[in-house]
Amino acid sequence: MNKHKPQHELQHKQAFDEPLWWGLFSAGGVCFAVLLPAVILFIAVLLPLGLLPANALNYERASALLFSVPGFLFVGAVICLPLFHAAHRLRHGLFDISVGSDALNKKLMYGGAALLSVFALGLVIAGMLS
């Protein structure tokens, strides 16, 4: 648990934020496992191969589906939470192969996930307003 902290720091500082990262990691892991197989299959495989009905995800239908309240929740479950899951695994993976410093990796990974999440949710809101 405390493997990322140098020994001298351990005695003085408690990692109050770690439960948050592990919670987001777990929630993102559930989304990655349960939702992403179907999402990738339909959006990244069947759609570009032309195997969906022509009007299934044309511009009008895709806009109507995404720029809505369900679309907002979809983005949270398919983009934001999996991003925090990925950030957590990348941070620990970098630690495992001794790349960079964990203090910096942590800021970069979770910060990147947070920025992209805000960007994604902002795009949905922009689409709902336009």
Partner: peptide
């Protein structure tokens, strides 16, 4: 641990798709 690398690629594709939409 590496399964998140193609996941991140797909998510970046999705973000590009949202901008395009």
């Amino acid at each position: 641990e590496a399964t998140v690398l193609p996941l991140v690629f797909f998510i970046l594709c999705l973000l590009a798709g949202m901008v395009a939409l």
